[in-house]
Simulated assay, not measured.
Amino acid sequence: MTSDHAPSRATERLPVVLVHGLRVSGAALHRIDAAITDRETRCPDLPGHGTRSGEVFTMESAVDAVFDAIDDVGGRAMVAGMSLGGYVAMAAGARDSTAIAGLTVMCATTQPTALLAAPFRVFGAATRYLPKEAAAISKFLTRIAVGRGVSEDMEAGGLSLHSIRDVVNGLATFDALSAIASYAGPTEFLNGAQDPFRLNEHRFLDAAQDARLTVVESGSHLFPLIQPALVGKFIAAEAASLDHDFDPATDR
């Protein structure tokens, strides 16, 4: 997904690539994107999601999608990812630190393991055998948890429940701690205080070469979608702190 208003944003500032989470698409991040008003942004769909729902998700192909978006804005950007997107962002940083000026990793500081993947595998299997029922349950539970407005944002671009199994398989063997340890640029970890996926946040903070941690009071795992203006301004501020190292004459 490319922002409709991206061409009017300042081209001398570091672009931002926003990476979505599991089940949703780049369109789900449109309110965060709209809050970043001073620079170009991209919200690509990962394989198996949105406009690429017919493709098979792998971590390698997801990282390729991030770098395609970076190439689209000139070859260097800050990458901000939420949940699954946070893990993909760390994998992208591990592949090439020079093209990624900085990372903002949201709701993704639990080291993936086969044990943690087990319940997601069960739900993933259910979506394969009972896709309509699983979709209805997913929408119902999401609307109870976050309300109709946020739920509709998540459904923008379609829900890709069929990709849960592939995503879980990709994450189950992904060493996120090693990935962030190999990234040479600055990292901002942004977590909700009530997010169960912050189990290992201090291990991630210690593993990263240059990192800070911000915790949003009372924030849940989906707080970036619930508080998109706050998150968009936070990401824009992080990108602005890196603008001094961005030279559009050479980086584009």
Rank of each mutant, 00 (worst) to 15 (best):
M1Y: 13
A6D: 15
S8F: 11
S8L: 12
S8A: 14
T11A: 15
E12W: 11
R13F: 02
L14Q: 00
L18I: 03
L18D: 04
S25C: 02
L29S: 07
R31P: 04
I32L: 03
I32K: 03
I36F: 03
T37G: 15
D38V: 01
E40K: 09
T41I: 10
T41P: 06
D45E: 04
S53F: 07
S61I: 00
V63G: 01
A65G: 01
V66T: 00
A69D: 03
A69H: 02
G75W: 10
A80E: 08
A80M: 07
M82I: 14
L84N: 04
A92S: 12
D96L: 00
M106F: 10
Q111M: 11
T113R: 09
A117R: 12
P119E: 06
R121N: 07
R121C: 03
R121I: 04
A125G: 10
A125S: 10
A126I: 05
R128S: 10
Y129N: 00
E133Y: 05
A136Q: 14
F140E: 08
A145Y: 01
A145D: 10
V146S: 06
V150G: 08
S151G: 15
G158Y: 07
L159Q: 08
H162L: 05
S163A: 15
D166S: 15
N169F: 08
S178D: 14
A179I: 07
A181D: 12
A181F: 03
P186R: 15
L190W: 11
G192A: 13
A193R: 08
P196R: 08
P196Q: 13
L199H: 10
L199T: 13
H202M: 09
F204K: 05
F204R: 04
D206W: 06
A207E: 07
A208F: 10
A211H: 09
R212W: 05
V215L: 03
E217I: 06
E217D: 15
S218A: 14
S220Q: 01
L222K: 01
P224K: 01
P228Y: 13
L230A: 06
V231I: 06
G232C: 05
K233V: 10
I235S: 01
I235P: 01
A239I: 02
A240Q: 03
A240Y: 00
A240M: 03
A240F: 00
D245A: 15
F246W: 07
D247V: 15
A249M: 08
T250K: 06
R252P: 03
